[in-house]
């Protein structure tokens, strides 16, 4: 009992140590600008641009549902233009960043973990190292930077489209005019609503990419190992997003 416990703590400390090493070494690799500079642009396309369709798909349906549910909730008691307020606030503060983040944890996190994991088990990472490349500057830094830059952009688009979709729903299916919707939208609006969402999505991007890279690079064993790492990356990213979401709410609101 005592032994298994101390063994567990030991394993846990070792894992924490590896993670710490990975983070500090990655931070150090950022100095190696010539290696990652060219590669980051390609990753921005893969991680960011290619994620736009799924982000917008989610945003459109979120906008529709929020609009309808708000009007259902407010029947009679609250003026209907509050639909605009609710759609705006929820999309900007919570659903835009978090739903997009969760979808991208699946898309981007799994993609990175599977790619790097396959490279690991087929010795491609070893090959890079023997060619005098540092896998951290060559593979990890471009992915993390690309995610850090592109997540806020993708989320901004999602927020914009979510609000537009909520507005279109309101004027076509509800008894609400554009003027009223916009009035509701502006009601409690603060500039902070925008940057709060962007800070969150920036942190989601960094964490999803880091987890995907770490899980991918530490794969052991063949195809089964890659599968396991991919699943772990998605689960860990999703959990990290929810924890970070709460963290920012406590710290910034």
């Amino acid at each position: 009992m005592y032994r298994t416990l101390s063994l567990k703590v030991g394993n846990w400390l070792a894992a924490a140590g590896r993670t710490g090493h990975f983070l500090t070494d990655t931070a150090r690799s950022v100095r190696d600008v010539p290696t990652w500079a060219g590669l980051t642009v390609a990753q921005m396309r893969r991680i960011g641009v290619d994620s736009v369709p799924i982000a917008l798909f989610i945003a459109i349906f979120t906008g529709i549902v929020l609009s309808l549910q708000a009007s259902y909730t407010f029947t009679g008691a609250v003026p209907l233009y509050f639909v605009g307020t609710l759609v705006g606030k929820t999309v900007m503060l919570e659903l835009g960043p978090v739903l997009t983040g969760l979808a991208l944890a699946g898309r981007v996190g799994a993609n990175i973990a599977a790619e790097l994991g396959t490279m690991r088990v087929t010795e491609q990472i070893d090959a890079l190292e023997t060619l005098a490349y540092d896998p951290l500057s060559y593979l990890v830094v471009p992915r993390v930077l690309a995610a850090a830059i592109m997540f806020p952009i993708v989320v901004s688009l999602a927020i914009l489209v979510g609000i537009i979709s909520g507005w279109l729903t309101a004027i076509s299916l509800l008894d609400l005019s554009t003027v009223e919707f916009v009035r509701g939208l502006k009601l409690f609006y603060q500039f902070k609503d925008i940057w709060f969402g962007l800070v969150k999505s920036f942190s989601f991007g960094v964490v999803i990419a880091l987890i995907g890279c770490f899980k991918g690079l530490s794969v052991r064993g063949g195809a089964a190992g890659v599968g396991r790492a991919t699943t772990e990356a998605v689960v860990a990213s999703a959990m990290a997003i929810l924890v970070l979401d709460a963290f920012w709410a406590v710290v910034l609101l």
Partner: peptide, 9 residues
Amino acid sequence: FVFQFAALL
């Protein structure tokens, strides 16, 4: 280094 299984990217 020539890898046993080539290890091409």
